[in-house]
């Protein structure tokens, strides 16, 4: 009897124990349950190093990009370790919506023009409707104009990519970039028109504004043959972000800065020290005047 009573007393006291927790927030649903947050800033820039990242320019933002690749560092003191030569690409890239962007560029290498469209299909998200990865599709058309005799059709190359990336926590982001590259007229006779490749890239944040980036494009073809003397591109660098600027400094065996060139026409190899120092400078301008909330 007494035992039973004791149990009863404990059961009756239970709700009061709950009251003893003296925190008003306990009365509310968890904050996490209301949060449906997109995972932002998987990469600091629209490029991992050479290759596209899943990031797109935000709506009404213009990105002016200047990229340089210098000569090979193994070219010796006479060439000042490559710094005497510079290859350049200049580009204007613009966000039409927060998911869709367009870009136009001009490279000194092969006097190439390039244009592209990039669309973010899925944005990684946490919360009520979680999405595990971000997926962006990329399509570009480029034209070589260095050879004056070439007919227009032969100048053209197409690239399509499906970029899949995941931000693992605050610091680490990894990306897979299956790539389809079609050249109407490859530079060397023995090269196939169609080239399939897959890019693997990532970044690791060292601090709020600095990250280390690396990227490798594996091409599905025999490397360095007499008819197609090409290697796979491997690049390692750092991103430094300050407000509207992103500086990307890196070492890479690829000289070109557009997909056709760094995926398909990389002549250097790390093994022999055919490494180019290079940088991308990205300056973003917010063209929309909307920084204020609309007043009711």
């Amino acid at each position: 009897m007494i035992r039973k009573c004791k149990y009863l007393v404990w059961i009756l006291f239970m709700p009061l124990l709950g009251l003893a927790q003296d925190d008003l927030f306990d009365q509310l649903p968890s904050l996490d349950s209301s949060l449906n947050a997109p995972v932002s800033a998987t990469f600091k820039s629209t490029r991992v190093v050479n290759g596209q990242s899943i990031e797109t320019m935000k709506r009404q933002h213009l990105d002016f990009r200047i990229s340089h690749r210098f000569g090979r560092v193994n070219s010796g003191a006479y060439q000042f370790f490559g710094l005497d030569q510079a290859t350049m690409r200049m580009g204007f890239e613009y966000g039409i919506t927060d998911r869709l962007m367009v870009g136009l560029g001009r490279s000194t290498l092969q006097k190439a023009y390039d244009s592209f469209l990039k669309y973010k299909l899925f944005q990684q998200a946490t919360g009520l409707k979680p999405v595990p990865v971000s997926v962006t599709i990329f399509g570009s058309l480029s034209a070589y104009t260095a050879d004056k005799e070439q007919v227009f059709q032969d100048r053209i190359a197409y690239t399509a990519q499906v970029l899949v990336a995941r931000k693992f926590g605050e610091k680490l982001s990894l990306q897979l970039s299956p790539t389809w590259l079609f050249r109407n007229d490859p530079l060397t006779q023995g090269d196939e028109k169609l080239l399939l490749a897959v890019g693997v890239g990532g970044r690791y944040k060292l601090s709020k504004r600095v990250s280390v980036n690396a990227e490798y494009f594996y091409t599905a073809r025999e490397k360095f043959t007499t008819t197609a003397p090409y290697y796979d591109a491997l690049s390692i660098g750092v991103d430094i972000e300050t407000g509207g600027h992103v500086f990307q400094l890196h070492f890479t065996n690829a000289l070109g800065m557009i997909e056709r060139q760094f995926v398909g026409e990389t002549l250097g190899t790390w093994g022999k020290g055919d490494i180019h120092y290079g940088f991308n400078i990205s300056r973003t301008f917010g063209l929309g005047k909307k920084t204020r909330l609309v007043r009711n």
Binding site: S40, A41, K58, R59, H61, D98, K208, R209, E241, G243, G244, T284, G286, G288, K290, T291, R292, L293, V294
Partner: peptide, 12 residues
């Protein structure tokens, strides 16, 4: 209203 600012706000 400006999504780049939103990203910088959270990130930086």
């Amino acid at each position: 209203p400006n999504k780049l600012m939103q990203e910088h706000f959270n990130e930086n």
